[in-house]
Design a binder for these strands. Structure first.
Length: 358
DNA sequence: AAGATAGTCAACCGCACTCAC
DNA sequence: CGTGAGTGCGGTTGACTATCT
């Protein structure tokens, strides 16, 4: 539109921090006359400021209903949820937080909450686990792919030979994904890095679940089908963007609504997962497929031996053999109450499924 | 103790929207 | 319908403060 600036900058209007006297003048004027026309207000109030500056000062600082000070946990939680829903619509977010200004929320987000989310391994923009945190998955996937096609494994194909190692690798993959989706529910296999191919320490998953995000395991299907596993748009996830179990958005109407997630969650948590599995390097080496020594992961959960593993996590069972674990998983997967998505997920990783990494 | 670096937050800038004319 | 004034909004800046070296 090419409109002229609201303030004639050549007239030397004051900029920068407001003096207490200016605040007094502005407050007194608005208290007396209201905040009608911002452009004419400065002159009428005897201020050498542009109207925009006056408006900003009033809206963000001088308004009597402004609430200042630390954000409460509840407010933080609300901001995270609303940001997941609305993005950087600070004014809309602010409208849900009485007494807070868009500017204050924006600053708080950029200085505190972004950092917090990043530390938790969450992309503050997408509210999804960060790509780097998917490396363990990708790595295991690559292992699986390599196992399928790599000549170094000899003529045998891991997947054509339905071995314990194959299953263990699958389970390892699932475990990593569960950890990312439900970090609290799925403890680490060990304190060591669980990424077999990348010895770098992972972002602190244990801090993932704070009162900020209020994480119960998220609806698995929507999480999986958004951008982690299946690049295809998911009809359910498309309508229910389950950033937070307590706040959903109907994207077609852009209105918040609260489905009964508790029921889903109850169903989910009742599905106790079988104990986690560890595979020692010896297991790998002794595999009948002749795991090439160069290919053996040197650290991480895949190579944790019973002697070195620290599996005394609550809910984690140490097994003397992989087959016992597989039995548990089999039961879990065969259980009528189990979420069928796990079955289909396992199917996805099988060689009979459609081509591609999954 | 002093300089460097990082963190915080008020304020500015410019674009976009609404509405009156 | 086109134009411009008024306003709202989001990104960015820069001054100030705290912490580190």
């Amino acid at each position: 539109m090419g409109r002229s600036p609201c303030c004639d900058q050549d007239k030397g209007v004051k900029k920068g921090p407001w003096m207490p006297e200016e605040d007094d003048k502005l407050t007194a004027y608005i208290n007396k006359n209201g905040n009608g026309n911002w452009r004419s207000l400065p002159k009428l109030a005897g201020l050498n400021r542009c109207g925009k500056s006056c408006r900003l000062r009033w809206m963000n600082y001088l308004r009597p209903d402004i609430r200042r000070g630390q954000f409460s946990d509840e407010e933080e939680s609300t901001i995270v949820r609303l940001h997941a829903l609305l993005g950087n619509k600070w004014s809309k977010i602010a409208s849900h937080l009485p007494g807070r200004t868009d500017n204050e929320i924006k600053n708080y987000w950029n200085t505190h909450m972004r950092k917090k989310l990043l530390q938790m391994g969450i992309d503050p923009t997408t509210h999804e686990p960060r790509t780097n945190d998917l490396n363990p998955i990708l790595d295991v996937t690559q292992m699986l792919e390599a196992a399928i096609s790599n000549g170094q494994f000899g003529n045998s194909n891991l997947f054509n030979n339905n071995t314990a190692l194959e299953d263990l690798l699958k389970l390892q993959l699932i475990h990593k994904m569960l950890q990312i989706i439900t970090p609290k529910a799925i403890p680490n296999i060990s304190n060591s890095n669980t990424n077999p191919l990348n010895p770098k320490p992972e972002p602190v998953a244990s801090s993932f679940n704070t009162n900020l995000v209020n994480l119960k395991p998220e609806p698995v299907v929507s999480s999986f089908n958004t951008n982690l596993v299946n690049p295809k748009p998911d009809p359910v996830a498309g309508q229910l963007n389950a950033i937070d179990p307590h706040v959903f958005i109907n994207q077609s109407t852009n209105e918040d609504f609260m489905p009964s997630f508790e029921d889903n969650w109850d169903g989910f948590k009742d599905n106790q997962l079988p104990g986690l599995v560890t595979v020692s390097q010896e297991d790998m080496k002794s595999s009948k497929h002749g795991y090439h020594s160069d290919q053996i992961p040197t650290s991480g959960s895949v190579s944790v031996t019973p002697e070195t593993s620290d599996l005394n996590h609550p809910g984690t069972t140490q097994h003397s053999s992989g087959s016992d674990v597989l039995g548990d998983w089999e039961k879990f997967l065969d259980d009528e109450t189990s979420d069928s998505c796990w079955k289909s997920f396992l199917d996805l990783t099988s060689p009979t499924s459609s081509p591609g990494p999954w």
